[in-house]
Every structure is written in C-alpha cells, then in structure tokens.
Design a binder for these strands. Structure first.
Length: 501
RNA sequence: GGCGGCAUAGCCAAGAGGUAAGGCAGAGGUCUGCAAAACCUCUAUACCCCAGUUCGAAUCUGGGUGCCGCCUCCA
C-alpha cells in the first residue's frame, strides 16, 4: 500500500497543525500494518520555497541552513510525539532531475509552456481541472483576488518552474537557472517513489486547493493515468475557536504543548475526533481529554499491578472457605461460563445486581473479542479513531467489572487472562501500538525512579502496619500527606497501590 | 463577491433512512474502617429553525439562521 503525505515547508518552528497529519497518519499506518498490509509511507519536505528564502535573507543565512534546521526540529518533535518516521522522507532539493523531467514531459505534451525563464502549467488544457475541490475554472477565475502575472496565458495557470531571481538558490534547467514552483515536487516525487497510481494521498484540508488540485492536473497530464486512489485530508486547528494561522500569529508551538500536556494527551485529544474534523484547542478541552485518557491509563495500570502481584501457585484458589464459592471455581482450564452464572443463582441472591458482581472469565474473554472487533470495524470505516477509542472504553468497563467484582480471586489462571487484556490494550493503544495513547511505563532504570519506588514501599509498609493496628488516623495522615504531594494511594484487595496525580 | 463544510445533552464527540455510541462534568446508590478507584442507576419523548419526500428522517430534498474554512502562505 503506497501512501504519500504532504509534509511541511520547513521555515518555522513546528506547530500543532503539523502534528495533526502526523498523528493520524501514524495511527493509520500502524493500523494498516496490524491488518497485514505492507505499507510504504512517503513524506516530503518542500525545502525550497519563497518563505524559506525570505527567512534566510532575514537571518543572513543560506536557504538550505534554514530548511535543515526546521526539518530537524520537525523530526525531533515527531520523535517526542512517538510518531514512527516515514519509510522515506523526500526533499525537493534532492529530486531536481526528476522534477525537471516531469516538467519537460508536460511541456512536450502541450500541458505547459515557457514564458521567459518561467514555465507555466496551462490549466485549460486539463479538462478535469477543479474536480478535487469541486470547482470549475470559471468559478475560480471569477473569485480570483490575486494579481496575475502578465506572463500567464490564463490567470489560473501556475508556475512549474520559476526563473532565478538575484539572491535566490537556483538550479540549471532547460529553461535556464531557476527553481521549481510549489506543487510540481509532490507530483514528481510521489510518482517516482510510489508509481502512477498509489493508494492514499494525504495532507491538511487547506491543501485541497490549489496544491492537490494542481498535483492532480500535473500528474494525470504527465502519466495519462489517474493519480492517487484516495485523498485523506486532515482537519485544521483552531485555537479557542479561532483559526490558527501564520498570519494571525496564534500558532501553538508543538514543543510547548507537549511540555504542558504530554504527547499522549495531545494524541488522545486529536484521536477522539474524526481526522477530518476541526480541532479546537483550548485548555478546557485538553483537560477533558486528559481526564478521559486517565480512565484508560488507570485500568491498564490496575491490570498490570494484578499481573505483577505474586500469586501462590495453586493453594490460594480454594482457600476462602467462608465464602460461598462455586465448587469448580479455579479449576484450571475451566472457563467458568454458564456454570458460574448458574452458581450465582444458587448463592441465593436477593438482588439482580449480584449477577453482575460475578467475576466471570468468559465475560472477560467476550469483552476482549468484542473490543477488538469493534475497534477494527471503527478503523475499517474511514479510520474512525473516535469510535475506536469508544471500544477501548467499553473494554475498560468490562475489565473493571471483572477485577472489582466481589467474587474476584486473583489466581495464576486469571493472571494469564489479564495478560491478554494487557496485550490487547498494548496492541491497540499502547505506546508502540496503533493509537499510541498509553504512556510507556516509567523508565525503571533511572536512579530517582528506583529511589521513589523504594521510599514508597517503605511508606506504604508503615501505613499497612498502622492499618493492621486499626490506627486509622496515622493511616489517613499518610494518605492525605501523600495526596498533597501528588501521590494518590488506593487500597485494593492485593494491597495499596499508588500513582502520581 | 464565488465555492465548500459544519450545527447532536452542561462540555467534548460518534452516528449519515429504522427509532440517539463513548468520554468529561453532575445526581443517587453499591463496595470501603473512612476514602480513592471501580461498578450500577439517572441525566437528548423537537439531533439549529421552517417546509417537504418517506410507512419511517438527526440522517434525504428545498429554504432560512448561525459558525467555520477555501479562493493568498499554511498541516
């Protein structure tokens, strides 16, 4: 499966708008791989451009220095976000031959003409012009607000090659020194690396016109074949309800947001929307996202703690004699299924609610299968990550019911099942999973972390003693003080657990 | 001015002809030494408004209103 996504024009710090396609395409790629597709993912850098040149002149540097700096910034930020690098990043400056070849081809076929040192694409020669953005050349002309170059035969024509101006980087070409126009690089590079008809082409919604429209015109005219099969356009970012744009100066720096909220919350916030929707950033919404994500993180942590908890090999399973237990409980290999439900009735319940209290392993298995199916169905339907996350919440509820049920007993067999829960959460949402919204476990190697672990163990041990002596005030004081320090203590049947808040 | 998109509970957000997912916040309950976490129950009998098509519309059509975007660099 070939995918080409328009990356960035590297001339300023990476902002949140850059992260939208990055995050969604990361999830899409990973999902497609999970589904067994072989994915070839190409992303470009338009590293020659008016804005880069302007910035370079402003700083008294080479355009290439500027481009390199911001390419590096972009890639670093993607790394911070846990986005897998593209299979190949392509750059305009490294594909001049190919770009010139395509322009030559367009000239030869009559789709482009030379005017002075420039080469323009002749829009009226391409009958389908406007088909992506749903516009006709007439409409476009009527609405044109830009000053038209006198060299153009038609106001809608756009530059394939721009003759060199003083102080600008330039390359040799059949039309003299110059550089490529915006648009042509994506045609040239996608065709070169993915062939004439690849599967998906992505980019921001704002690129539909003119960028992608022009890509289609160039590519289809050049190859005589249809271009990309599917267009996947990601939505744009607003900040407190206002469009975020360079010209308004309200761009949100990606690094700052990552520092404030962490990559997972940012991803979660984005992925709880459909990729095509507008993403409105505000503190309230990020807080909302943060809390929603916490629910998922908590259940995974709880399961992890249960899996890590030492269980005595076999004995423990039959131990609680004072409890009314289904006779077969804990028999290895028994799924519990109908028998457990029947036994619940036998317990002599007065309330229906008791049925739901049963920690029924079969229910857990069903929930796992269902969650994975729903997740797939959601992603299969136009990569509906919002629905996919809902399936994770459904699973979280089932898992919580299971592990918090009064009849829950932690046995080796139950741990095996719980490991499956962890595996699925990891695969679908883990750091290296499809959505990448669950944080990686704290790096165990760090010295501070080891110290904190040790101290917490000591403190919680002291509290356990206090509780055993029914010294509630001491136990509560420890818990309250820790809470003030940002550590939440929760008592569970397997002992106290703690987490940072 | 031309073109396009969107409008679903207090908030966020799926759903795109068959009777409204999920999360956050809120209320009540269960569990707990008390909490926390979790679970259960409740929280949209006008899905912006008005007409229409249909046995049936949040979903389709027409007309409004409001917001946003594109037409100029942007992801």
């Amino acid at each position: 499966m070939g995918i080409y996504v328009c990356g960035v024009t590297p001339y300023s710090d990476t902002h949140i708008g850059h992260l939208v396609p990055a995050v969604f395409w990361d999830a899409i790629r990973k999902y497609l791989k999970y589904r067994g597709y072989e994915v070839r993912f190409i992303q470009n850098f338009t590293d020659v451009d008016d804005k880069i040149i302007a910035r370079a002149n402003q700083e008294g540097r080479n355009a290439s220095e500027i481009a390199e700096r911001y390419v590096a910034d972009y890639l670093t930020v993607l790394g911070m976000m846990g986005v897998e690098p593209a299979d190949r990043y392509v750059k305009v400056t490294q594909e001049m031959e190919e770009i010139i070849r395509v322009i030559e081809g367009l000239v030869r076929k009559g789709y482009a003409y030379q005017a002075g040192g420039d080469v323009f694409y002749a829009v009226e020669k391409f009958p389908g012009y406007g088909k992506l953005s749903g516009r006709t050349p007439e409409e476009l002309e009527a609405g044109a607000r830009v000053e038209v170059s006198p060299l153009k035969r038609n106001p809608l024509d756009f530059a394939l090659w721009k003759g060199a101006k003083p102080g600008e980087p330039a390359w040799d070409s059949p039309w003299g020194k110059g550089r490529p126009g915006w648009h042509i690089e994506c045609s040239a590079m996608s065709l070169k690396y993915l062939g004439s008809r690849f599967d998906m082409h992505g980019g921001g919604l704002d690129l539909i016109f003119p960028h992608h429209e022009n890509e289609i015109a160039q590519s289809e005219a050049y190859t005589g074949e249809p271009f990309a099969r599917y267009w996947v356009h990601t939505g744009l970012v607003t900040v407190d309800g206002e469009k975020m744009s360079k010209s308004l100066g309200n761009s949100l720096a990606a690094r700052e947001l990552i520092r404030q909220w962490g990559p997972e919350v940012l991803k979660f916030f984005l992925l709880t929307n459909h990729y095509r929707s507008a993403f409105n950033f505000s503190v309230a919404e990020l807080e909302n996202a943060s809390r929603g994500l916490a629910r998922l993180v908590r259940v995974v942590e709880a399961v992890q703690a249960l899996v890590d908890h030492q269980v005595e090999p076999a004995r423990q399973e039959v131990e609680p004699a004072h409890q009314v237990e289904p006779a077969h409980q804990g028999v290895p290999g028994d799924t519990g299924g109908a028998g457990a439900v029947a036994a619940a009735g036998a317990v002599g319940t007065t309330e229906m609610a008791d049925l739901t209290d049963l920690a029924n392993p079969a229910d857990l298995d069903n929930a796992l299968a269902e969650a994975e199916n729903e997740f797939r169905a959601a992603m299969d339907d136009d990569f509906n990550t919002a629905l996919a996350i809902a399936s994770l919440h459904d699973l979280a509820r089932e898992v919580n019911r299971f592990i918090n049920a009064p009849s829950f007993r932690l046995t080796a067999e139950v741990q095996t099942r719980l490991r499956k829960v962890l595996r699925l959460f990891g695969e679908l949402a883990g750091k290296d999973g499809i959505l990448g919204i669950l944080p990686r476990e704290a790096p165990a190697g760090s010295r501070d972390e080891a110290l904190v672990e040790g101290l917490m163990e000591l403190i919680l041990d002291a509290r356990r003693s206090a509780k055993q002596a029914k010294d509630w005030s001491t136990a509560d004081r420890i818990r309250d003080t820790l809470k003030k320090l940002g550590v939440a203590v929760e008592d569970t049947p397997q002992g106290a657990r703690w987490r940072r808040t």
